[in-house]
Amino acid sequence: MNTQRIGAIFEKDFKDFMKNMMLLTMPVIPIILAIIYSRLGDGEELPIPMLYLIVGVTFSSVTASSMMTMMAEENEKKTLRGLMLSPASFMDIIIGKSLVVGLMTLISLIISLALVGIEPFLNVQAIIGLLLLFLFFLFLGIGIGLFTNSIAATSAYLMPVMFLFGFTPMIDFLGLGEDSLAITIANYFPIMQLIEMHDTNSWLPIGIVAIWTLAAAIFTYICFKKEKTDD
């Protein structure tokens, strides 16, 4: 790992992010959503599942999507070819990009949560939960970004990530029975677990989310290995 290179990538990608309209509109989505929801609530505090819906949208549309898009663009335009001198430099690239994405996510999340009420998140347990959730989406983004070769393809991969993991609280609106299989499975999804954590205050949901994050990390690692052997 080389901090100078990470700094170089961070600076380059930050400037690029600011000039890329496609990426720049992403952090605005959760903020707009938050404004709409805060109007709907008539000044009352929004229920926890609604807050987590905004969190889910932020992480899927900002974290996972920008990571995917940034990596897919590098793949598509072959800009990394001249830069990859050793496998170590690849880590520098990913870390540098993750920092940019992390910063953007943080800004977007804080603004949108401030609009709907940030109080429920101001405790250690919730922050750890959010951090794990961020890593989970980041790993998904990196993994998918590794094998997509065009920006157009990322939107296809983004959809399942968004609907499965970002919009999980919406499953209640599908009108499925309370004990149907889909609901039971969905209840183990990371965001549902974090909502449950707010109800029960137990640390078990954090453990389950950690397992999800670990699984995403393994997924990224497999994608990485596969990419290496393909070259």
Partner: peptide, 12 residues
């Protein structure tokens, strides 16, 4: 044949 960062300036 490999790409450069088109949105960024020459200096960047």
């Amino acid at each position: 044949k490999d790409g450069l960062y088109e949105r960024l300036s020459v200096g960047d």
